[in-house]
């Protein structure tokens, strides 16, 4: 049952052939493929990590940009407020000036009209006084003779 014989040598040869085949053919093929795959997986993982980092930095940049935009919007809003106030003030000023000018013109017109009416009245009063005096005296007044008197009268009205 435990006899060692020629079978031993045959078994040794079979082992050597199988070992040679696996060492020279199978293991190199498998090792290359598996190494390639491990490299690929490592690259993929590295890429994923890089992507994660990129995402984080992009998020940070977005936040920064949003912050800056918000600040700019705020500044623009304030600027607009200032500009609006300025515009309103300017308009107010213009309107006030215009009103003052109109008032002045109207006052001048009124003064002029008053003067005219006074002058008209004055001449009419002179004529009225003359005719009144004629009636009282019963004779004609020589207008020429009394022109000076009448003029000074009218001037006093």
């Amino acid at each position: 049952m435990l006899d060692i014989n020629g079978t031993f040598i045959g078994q040794l040869l079979v082992l050597l052939v199988l070992l040679w085949f696996i060492y020279k053919v199978v293991v190199p093929m498998l090792a290359t493929k598996i190494e390639e795959r491990q490299q690929k997986i490592a690259n993929g993982l590295a890429a994923a990590e890089r992507g994660q980092k990129d995402l984080l930095s992009a998020e940070a940049r977005v936040e920064e940009l949003v912050k800056a935009a918000r600040q700019r919007a705020l500044a623009i809003e304030q600027q607009a407020q200032v500009r609006a106030n300025e515009t309103i003030d300017a308009a107010k000023q213009t309107a006030q000036n215009e009103a003052a000018r109109l008032l002045e013109a109207a006052q001048a017109q009124v003064a002029l009209d008053t003067q005219k009416a006074r002058d008209a009245l004055r001449s009419q009063v002179a004529a009225l006084a003359v005719s009144g005096a004629e009636k009282i005296i019963g004779r004609e007044i020589d207008a020429k003779a009394h022109t000076q008197l009448l003029d000074s009268l009218a001037a006093n009205l």
């Binding site: 079979v14 082992l15 052939v17 199988l18 085949f21 696996i22 053919v25 199978v26 093929m29 498998l30 493929k33 598996i34 390639e36 795959r37 690929k40």
Partner: peptide, 17 residues
């Protein structure tokens, strides 16, 4: 042994990434 060699060789040849 031949079967084992054939099976391993088949798998190693078909292995692809």
């Amino acid at each position: 042994a031949a079967f084992v060699a054939w099976l391993l060789w088949l798998a190693a040849r078909r292995a692809s990434n």
